[in-house]
Design a protein around this nucleic acid. Structure first.
Lengths: 230, 230
DNA sequence: ATTTATTTTTAGACAAAACTAAAAATTGGT
DNA sequence: ACCAATTTTTAGTTTTGTCTAAAAATAAAT
């Protein structure tokens, strides 16, 4: 029950190391498929040579498997580290939205900083304060302390049938421009959305939110996740 | 009313620079008296040569006045920066105690990390969530956004007269050993303390806390701040 | 006032994390 | 199987923040 995760503290990860691990995970480093040096460099907006340097360092620490000229995958330990960072990131995002009135588009930048704070008690207490949430404001699952998490049974609004009813649970695109558009149109987490009409010509939708009719393009609908209600 | 403090973001302070500024402030760098290189080095557990290097860097940034072979004082800008860091540190301490069940001796280490998070909205919202507190859990005043703060009208328990009644508002010594002693004896912020007896021989005190009698040494009493009630 | 002790600064080196430019390995096309 | 294009790595620099050891300035003491 104590679940101390002492190993994480002993690792003494630097901020930079943590960011690499996180990026590798997001690029699919969990599976046995090797992640290319170039892909990591592009994602992190850095140079491939820097990635090689860091890959060696992380391999020495036992966080990644590194095959020269091939790429990297995360070790079991690397996955644990990645999940613990993602857990922190997503819990902080919930905290910012639920307790501090942050909007969708404001949370990411601050959570990127907060995810590196080293205190097990801190994040556990934040978890408790929030009532042990399972999903973050973008609908992504929050890993538990022992690294388990469940994908939500969600679907894209663009995949809903005409007349379908759903609750907004997240977004696919997390860019500020998209998130600001949603805020401006009163589309937020937990809002009920009904599809009133689907235009045959361009797949644009007429939806009902807060008892107001709204027209949105297919591109918008293809980036909004809903949980089917009916 | 907006009070943007844009200058703080433009400064692009590193963690290390912020820690130097904070230390200089705590050593009295606010007043015109020069703070010696050695004093800063000792406080930060680093070498004097490192302090010299950083002093030059901070002087170039306009944060300190640096007189060779004499020491440093903070500029007006340096004081502003120091107060903004201290404001963040103390607000986070209140947050940890009030909202996350941290004890006195646990808050410092985590607040040392959180004070470096860069987001004006974050700290302003934390401030609001806490109801704009004026003092931190150690009884130290929290600077307002524009850098003003008020010392509390507090006194050491050892300076109270026999029979005096006070409310615990802070501590002088903030070492974990002392703070753990207080926790163990149910002495906490907001507790009412009455002096029942002062031993002439060694100035040890008999006090009343939670309707329980307790004997404490003069050294303990000389590190506990109370606000006089009667 | 001159020597001694202390404090502070310089100079040179190192580690982390990044970069550039050149070399090496891999991949793909024919 | 070979050549060209791409990807990855190596080698050598840079910046930030630190260190050690030596030199310079200040302070103290007789």
């Amino acid at each position: 029950m104590t679940n101390k995760n002492v190993f994480l503290e002993k690792l003494c990860m630097t901020r930079s190391e943590e960011n690499y691990i996180k990026t590798i995970f997001h690029l699919g480093g969990n599976s046995p498929t090797l992640i290319s040096t170039n892909a990591i460099a592009e994602q992190m907006e850095t140079k491939p040579s820097s990635v090689t340097d860091m890959s060696k360092k992380l391999a020495e620490k036992g966080l990644v498997h590194h095959k020269r000229y091939q790429g990297v995958t995360l070790t079991e330990l690397g996955v644990k580290v990645a999940l613990s960072i993602i857990r922190k990131h997503r819990l902080w995002e919930v905290f910012l939205v639920e307790k501090l009135n942050f909007t969708w588009d404001e949370v990411h930048e601050v959570a990127e900083q907060l995810e590196h704070i080293k205190s097990e008690k801190l994040i556990d207490q934040i978890d408790a304060l929030l009532g042990y949430p399972k999903y973050d404001p973008h609908g992504d699952p929050i890993p538990s302390k022992d690294g388990k998490f469940m994908e939500m049974d969600k679907q894209l609004l663009s995949d809903m049938p005409n007349g379908g009813l759903g609750v907004c649970v997240g977004v696919k695109d997390t860019s500020p421009t998209f998130l600001k558009f949603l805020d401006k149109n009163q589309i937020a987490l937990g809002k009920t959305i009904q599809v009133l009409d689907i235009e045959e010509f361009d797949q644009s939708l007429t939806i009902l939110v807060d008892n107001k009719k709204l027209n949105i393009s297919h591109q918008i609908a293809a980036n909004l996740y809903v949980k089917k209600q009916s």
